[in-house]
Structure formats: structure tokens, C-alpha cells
Design a protein around this nucleic acid. Structure first.
Lengths: 149, 149
DNA sequence: TTAAATGCAAATGATTTGCTCTTGG
DNA sequence: CCAAGAGCAAATCATTTGCATTTAA
């Protein structure tokens, strides 16, 4: 987790990618945060540490990191972008109330094998398995409002 | 598929939900379109048929239909809302190039059983399984641009 | 030195909302 | 008839972009 940052730095250097303070901070913020933060959450978390940081930089850097293959953008139902620095195949536990996302490895729920060919000429490349439910925190805090959906 | 509309109408009447022309058209557009269209795609498809239709109505109706349990908003990586009128559990084949989404039933790829309890006090309620890859159409049209990700 | 990265602010695009008018039941 | 729903336009929110300035290598 902290060693990811070392690997990240080395890999940037190796590829000749400029290692700015912002780049490292944004990557680290993502690697350290298990909640798969939004761009804005990363910005909020770093604005003190990295004085003068701008939202534009955060958005631009997340896009770059994704294109360079250091992070992945995860799919969400609310449409707000969230990122994941964990590149090892894993599943997500998505809370339908607070929208938090937790990682869980294949040991808890084994995902199905990825077939070589799909129906209708579709070529499968990877699986994205989410388990939707209620996280421990939301369950404890009771059903506050009348839980419509 | 066309019978869904009948069931939909009956269910609306039964629940005392006002069955406007817009409501029925939007629901039908969704039920007939296997690509899980965006709000704007629905608006574009219906603006002739339903003259004077406004985007606001489409957005509001999709929200209502979702709250009433007639459709589901599906998770996407690009952040643009897409909806699904198929409530039977199924998987999605997501093309990473054209972003189209195709349904596929459990017969092709069997999803894992949903455990009663998750790790860390998480209570699982449903699975969301997406197979990401390249659809037949994009594969045929060749690797146009240099496919970064 | 110098191309790439940053900050700021303005622009964009999807979605929401206030308010008035229309309409289904 | 009359509250729920629709249309219009302005507002909002996440995200992107143009441009002048800074900076890693």
C-alpha cells in the first residue's frame, strides 16, 4: 500500500513521466484511501497538504493516471467518477445508501471464470463484479429516512 | 417486451399513478431499446413521436420510474446515466469502445451465488455483473484509432 | 533550457429546479 | 374540478479547457 508509491515513482521515472508533487500526492491519496474517492474528495483531502492545488489538476491527473494504467475508473450508479489504485482483480461492495465502495478479494466470493468468447460476437476481456447492499455503518445507524428504493 | 407495456399500464392504474402519454412513451422507449439508452437518447428518439416533449420531463420521468421500481439505473464508467427496463436478474456486456450495453441471461455465464452475509458486516442484497470487452460491431470496424487503454 | 504540468477562470455538458400552464381521473 | 404532471428556461454540479506561468529533468 505504501510500497505502491515506491513502485509508482520508479515506474514513472522508468517511463520518463515527470514526477511532480501533485502527481505523487494524488496517486498516494488514491492508494491510501480504500473508499475509492471521487475527484472532489481527493481535492478536499489534499488542498491543505498541497497548497494551491487546483481541481483542474486533480481531474487532469486522474485522467492521465488512468491512461497510463496506474489507476482505474470504476463504474458507479450515481454518475460521479470514482477511482481505484488497486489493479489486482477484485470485487466491490457497494453500499446503496452511503455509496461507499469497499474492496473484497476473490477469497470471499469467487467470480466466475471469464469465457474466451461471448454471445453475439462479443469478445470478453474482463469482469466487473459488484455486490450491492448495505454497509455495516449504514446498517448500524438504522433506517433513517424512509428508504424508498 | 411489448407485453411489458401492458403490465406497466395495469400496474400504474392499480397503484393510482397517472398514465400520461409521456410516461407511457418513455417507458416503452426503454422497454423496446436493448441498448440501455441515455436520457438524451430517449429524448431524441421520442421528440417526433411526442411533439413538444421536453428533456426535463424525460429526466423527471426516468427518476420517477426508478423510484417506483419500473426501471433500474445501471452503473456506467463514463458517468452518463443509462436505464434498464429489464428487471429479471441478468448480466451486461459492456463495449469499452462504443460504450454499448447488451443484456445476457444467466445461461451464458452463471453468476456466483449471493452469500447471505458479506465481510466487514456488509449485507449483500444483489449482484451487478458486467463483462467488459469489445462488441462485434466495434471489432469488425477494426482498431481505428490507437486504442490507448 | 524547454516541453510538460499547473493554476485560474471561463466554458461545457448532463442533470435539476422554479414556476406557470396543462391534463388525467 | 384540481392536484399531479409537463414545458420552458434558468440554475446547478461535475468535469473540461484556454491560456499564462511554473517546474522537473
Amino acid at each position: 500500500v505504501a510500497r505502491w508509491c515506491t513502485i509508482f515513482s520508479q515506474e514513472c521515472r522508468r517511463r520518463g513521466i515527470r514526477l511532480t508533487a501533485q502527481r505523487l500526492a494524488i496517486y498516494r491519496a488514491l492508494a491510501c484511501d480504500a473508499t475509492h474517492p471521487t475527484a472532489d474528495a481527493i481535492y478536499a483531502a489534499l488542498r491543505e497538504e498541497v497548497s494551491g492545488l487546483s481541481r483542474a489538476t486533480v481531474y487532469r491527473m486522474l485522467e492521465s493516471l488512468q491512461l497510463e494504467g496506474f489507476v482505474r475508473r470504476v463504474s458507479t450508479v450515481d454518475g460521479i467518477a470514482r477511482y481505484d489504485a488497486n489493479l489486482v482483480p477484485h470485487q466491490h461492495l457497494v453500499c446503496r445508501q452511503c455509496r461507499s465502495i469497499l474492496d473484497t478479494g476473490g477469497e470471499w466470493l469467487r467470480p466466475p471464470e471469464l469465457p474466451r468468447r461471448g454471445p453475439a460476437g462479443f469478445i470478453p476481456e474482463m469482469l466487473d463484479l459488484c455486490i450491492i447492499g448495505i454497509c455495516a455503518r449504514c446498517r448500524r445507524s438504522g433506517e433513517r429516512r424512509g428508504d424508498a428504493n
